[in-house]
Amino acid sequence: MEISVKINGTPQKHEIEPRQLLVDFVRSTAGLTGTHIGCDTTSCGVCTVLLDGVPVKSCTVFAAQVDGHEVATVEGLKSNGELHAIQKAFTAHHGLQCGFCTPAMMLVGAAFIEENDNPSDDEVRWAISGNLCRCTGYVNIVKAIQAAAEERRAQ
């Protein structure tokens, strides 16, 4: 079947198998390997993408379901050659170690600060509680998201 989808702002048409998962579509068909696979059970969240601006775990969405919708991935965070505030904050606050959960964490963080640009520590922790990290103990991820929120506030 054919689907039309806007990926990181670019409209595209793709021929897909009806059973193809969105994560495989993003990685293999669209060639955007910044989105990762970690568990197959919607538990770890490393496959998170934004579907019409809302974080979804793309291992539990069929590619067919995004027909006519908009998908954003980590590759689309940067705009006009400028890193997104969340990307700068993850580096500045050492919010990543192995980097495998990082694209998803940043997307969740980026969507979250659009809704809450002055989050408490607990609010950030709740927002990212669907995403696992095995390296950092989360503390610097929380700091990075709060710092990005602060920059968002200042805009």
Binding site: T33, L83, Q87, T91, G99, M106
Partner: peptide
């Protein structure tokens, strides 16, 4: 010192095993 490896990882340009085709 900020990490040198971060630049690729925050832009989805890491090269993990499953990214190899």
């Amino acid at each position: 010192v900020p990490r040198q490896e971060d630049a690729r990882l925050i832009e989805g340009q890491g090269n993990f095993l499953d990214d190899i085709s």
